[in-house]
């Protein structure tokens, strides 16, 4: 791609300046939006993070004190730990569900588009809406899950699902998987469909069983797709907020405070805007680091057919 591009440019040196300006014109609106809604806020946040910045009253320059404070903040550390734990568990859960689903809906069978649609449907609901729905589903008395379990005779008393850490965490994981797996499934499905049928057939003739075909042909050829799905899932999970805020309000014994939730608390409950800004910058750094890993993952294995 780049090779042919530069070759095409050579005989057109003279026009380069003008077309350079025109190119700039084309991207100007997008650039303006990015600058207005991303670069400037980040710079402003960075500026805020260097201050003691209460909601009311004067701001005071304190240098990197907010960042130093961060490293000694036990609650921030536990929020980080919890977010990492949640991210790992939910990502594994999403993939464990989405991959078999993708394989299931990839095959041509009856009603396959109906299956795809049904599985994808929860994706179009907002996360906050889904959280609210599941708060109701998980309600002890007027909900669905507890009473249903009781009706089936599996439990004596309808459990309060959101009352203990484990059951609340499990409920949230199930809710998020229900909400997100369809999206991951579609991404994985496109990767599966990009693998030529001939390859699978060649592998069948070579004597590879179902699992071996998956392991030696499908998986390696889906590396990029998987990397993409993984990154979307991981970044989404690191930014998790709605479900904890709405479903458990931080959870039993405040053990479900994610990083974004903690930033929210610092900024808009405690009104430490400066400190909240510093935490946001730290989170941004983490996400950038993960994006770099993503780019690296996408770079390797360029031998797609």
């Amino acid at each position: 791609m780049t090779g042919t591009g530069s070759k095409a440019l050579l005989p057109r040196r003279k026009r380069r300046r003008r077309s350079g300006w025109r190119g700039f014109l084309y991207i100007a609106p997008a650039m303006a939006l990015v600058i207005l809604f991303f670069v400037m806020p980040v710079i402003f946040t960075g500026w805020m993070s260097l201050h003691n910045w209460p909601l009311m009253g004067g701001t005071r320059w304190i240098g990197f004190n907010n960042y130093v404070r961060m490293f000694h903040d036990a609650r921030f550390m536990s929020a980080l730990r919890f977010t990492a734990y949640y991210t790992v568990i939910v990502t594994i859960a999403i993939f464990a569900v989405a991959f078999p689903l993708a394989i299931f809906v990839e095959k041509q069978r009856r009603f396959v588009s109906a299956y795809r649609t049904i599985i994808f449907l929860p994706v179009v609901i907002g996360l906050a809406t889904a959280s609210l729905l599941w708060v109701w589903l998980a309600n002890v008395d007027s909900g669905f899950i507890g009473p249903a379990l009781k009706a089936l005779g599996w439990v004596d008393k309808s459990p309060n699902l959101l009352a203990t850490f484990d059951s609340a965490f499990l409920t949230i994981i199930i809710m998020v998987v229900w909400k997100i797996a369809g999206f991951t499934m579609i991404i994985l499905l496109t990767g599966l469909q990009a693998i030529p049928a001939d390859l699978t057939e060649a592998a069948r003739i070579d004597g590879a069983g179902r699992w071996q075909r998956f392991r030696h042909v499908t998986l390696p050829l889906m590396r990029k797709t998987i990397a993409l799905a993984l990154i979307i899932s991981v970044t989404g999970s690191i930014l998790a907020f709605d479900q904890f805020y709405i479903m458990t309000s931080g959870g039993p014994q405040n053990r479900m405070i994610s990083v974004v939730y903690y930033i929210f608390n610092q900024s808009f409950v405690s009104f430490n805007l400066g400190y909240g800004a510093a935490l946001s910058i730290a989170l941004l750094a983490i996400l950038v680091a993960i994006s770099i890993v993503q780019l690296w993952l996408l770079r390797v294995g360029e031998e797609r057919p």
Binding site: D198, L199, A202, A203, H216, G301, E303, P305
Partner: peptide, 10 residues
Amino acid sequence: VFQSYALYPH
């Protein structure tokens, strides 16, 4: 032997 060769690209 397939028309598309069907070699494993990786």
